[in-house]
């Protein structure tokens, strides 16, 4: 077994940790563990939440099945786990209208990085991106692969309301707020595309492992798309 550790999250969950940094190896391992757990469909497992370097398993506690039992079960199951073979990745294009009222922090991001607004848009829309995890809010993607030259720290005071479908930057990451929530990311634009799909079988447009392309669009294109 690779360097995998197990620790409790309260009395109804166990965290499988595969590393401490976002690496290709860690994200692939998280994906293989997810796949293996889903294929095994163990009935004492209630739900599984993957993140950057962890997979958290929520289990049904019974008199005969407690923390050490789920730990044993998972240890045995993952004894020969390896990184997943490269599966065919989907590429999803997300149209973005940058700046203006929808991207109130675009100028700050430019200023912070000593760039022009045009350069920030250019750099943001030319990255090779991958969804590292979905979490925080319904369908919210944490997207890795952004150019370091536009990295910007979170705002010191989070905003109370960020409109749905706003595109933001936090440190080295970029992401999109699928629904209106509070949040501290720097807001650079907005997409007309829905990321949270409550009526679909899989309610999130994006999934960990997806490749992302951000495509700049004009206000007119944005309005036309949203109108449809």
């Amino acid at each position: 077994m690779m360097d995998i550790t197990f620790s409790p999250l309260g009395d109804e969950a166990i965290v499988i940790e595969v590393g401490y940094e976002i690496t290709k190896e860690a994200t692939n391992l998280v994906r293989s563990i997810m796949r293996q757990l889903e294929e095994a469909a163990i009935d004492t497992i209630v739900e599984v939440i993957p993140a950057f370097t962890t997979v958290t398993v929520f289990y049904e506690v019974t008199a005969q099945f407690k923390f050490k039992d789920i730990k044993n079960l998972l240890e045995k199951m993952l004894v020969e786990i390896t990184e997943s073979d490269t599966v065919a990745q989907r590429t999803i294009e997300i149209p973005v209208y940058y700046g203006g009222e929808y991207g109130p922090d675009l100028e700050f991001v430019a200023l912070h990085n000593k760039l022009t607004v045009e350069q920030v848009i250019e750099l943001h829309s030319n990255g090779t991106y991958e969804v590292n995890m979905i979490g925080f809010a319904p369908g919210f993607p944490f997207i890795g692969g952004m150019a370091e030259s536009i990295a910007t720290p979170r705002r010191s005071t989070p905003r109370l309301r960020i409109p749905e479908r706003t595109v933001g930057i936090a440190g080295m990451q970029t992401g999109v707020y699928p629904i209106e929530t509070p949040g501290g990311w720097q807001l650079i634009g907005r997409t007309p595309m829905d990321l949270f799909l409550p009526n679909e079988e899989i309610p999130s447009l994006l999934q960990a492992g997806d490749r992302i392309v951000f495509k700049p669009i004009s206000k007119a294109e944005y309005d036309q798309w949203e109108g449809e």
Binding site: L9, A51, F52, T53, T54
Partner: peptide, 9 residues
Amino acid sequence: LSEAVSFGS
């Protein structure tokens, strides 16, 4: 790094 939280964390 962000990771799962649960009811009561």
